[in-house]
């Protein structure tokens, strides 16, 4: 697809933006992991199991709804908390291992809470590392990690930024936390411990947003949920159509869109909203 045709498509597919994806304090419900829901739309033996972590993530419910018809869903709280003792950490790790036993994939959507400063940074770095270690030990095949398109924000607006551009960060807790969490995910994939599909998500549009207020990174909850569903579906495909480490940029298609989503459209079969 040419650049001009993409621009034309974006002009047609407007979408409103406003609220940055995330925002809920990650630590607000941190606890020893508990399977808060188990859903199945059919015989359990024939369906793969997907954990969504954490349940309080802004996109957790739309993602759950998108996956529930095809997968068994487990909603799990993270087990790493900044101020926990070693004993609490070990107990949480064991509980997470139990919760992930027999699980095929994790949708991991950590949300930095800038007001919690270094606690948030710790929970996204150590928390990601510890979660992926447990996942690898339980032979979870696939992790879909929800990162942010803010990691591409430093490039001048004249560029249409795609997945081939290097992510960068500033010193803000929110952006640096996700940058470092992505770094950790990449190393697990590089070492072949699991497959990781990173979806860099734009700014999550709220329900009252209008097309006229669409921001350059806006994305709807439905678009995110469909991208996660597509990533899980393709991630499980046999023979594999993806490498161990894949990145896809996900945002609405409109005239002001900053990022190319061509790769997600072509390789995941993802479609932006038709608005």
């Amino acid at each position: 697809m040419t650049s001009s045709s993409r621009i034309q498509r974006r002009a047609f597919l407007g979408r409103a933006g406003g609220v940055v994806a995330g925002g809920a304090a990650m630590g607000a419900r941190l606890a020893v992991p508990v399977a808060t829901a188990e859903e199945s739309a059919g015989p359990a033996a024939t369906r793969k199991s997907v954990a969504i972590i954490p349940p309080v993530a802004a996109v957790a419910q739309p993602v759950r709804e998108a996956l529930a018809a095809s997968y068994q869903i487990r909603m799990l709280d993270p087990f790493v908390r900044f101020d926990q003792s070693l004993e609490e950490w070990a107990a949480g790790r064991r509980a997470m291992g139990d919760s992930l036993r027999g699980c095929d994939a994790i949708v991991y959507a950590p949300e930095p809470a800038p007001d919690r400063d270094e606690a948030s940074l710790d929970e996204l770095t150590r928390g990601t590392y510890d979660l992926l270690n447990v996942a690898a030990s339980q032979k979870v095949q696939l992790v879909v990690f929800l990162s942010t398109l803010e990691l591409m924000a430093d490039y001048p607006k004249e560029f249409e930024v795609d997945e081939g551009f290097m992510p960068t960060t500033d010193t803000s807790v929110r952006r640096m936390s996700l940058y470092l969490a992505e770094f950790a995910c990449r190393e697990f994939a590089r070492e072949g411990k699991l497959r990781c599909i990173t979806l860099r998500i734009g700014q999550l549009a709220n329900a009252s947003a209008t097309p006229a207020s669409a921001g350059p990174l806006s994305v709807s909850p439905g678009e995110v949920a469909r991208a996660v569903k597509a990533a899980v579906d393709v991630g499980f495909s046999q023979p594999s159509r993806l490498a161990n480490w894949e990145i896809f940029h996900i945002q609405s298609s409109h005239s002001q869109a900053r990022s190319s989503t061509e790769k997600a459209i072509l390789q995941l079969g993802w479609k932006p909203d038709q608005d």
Partner: peptide, 15 residues
């Protein structure tokens, strides 16, 4: 890689 020591040091280096 994914060793505790090298990865935690590498993240510090990125900071």
């Amino acid at each position: 890689g994914i060793g505790l020591y090298p990865l935690s040091k590498s993240l510090g280096q990125e900071i």
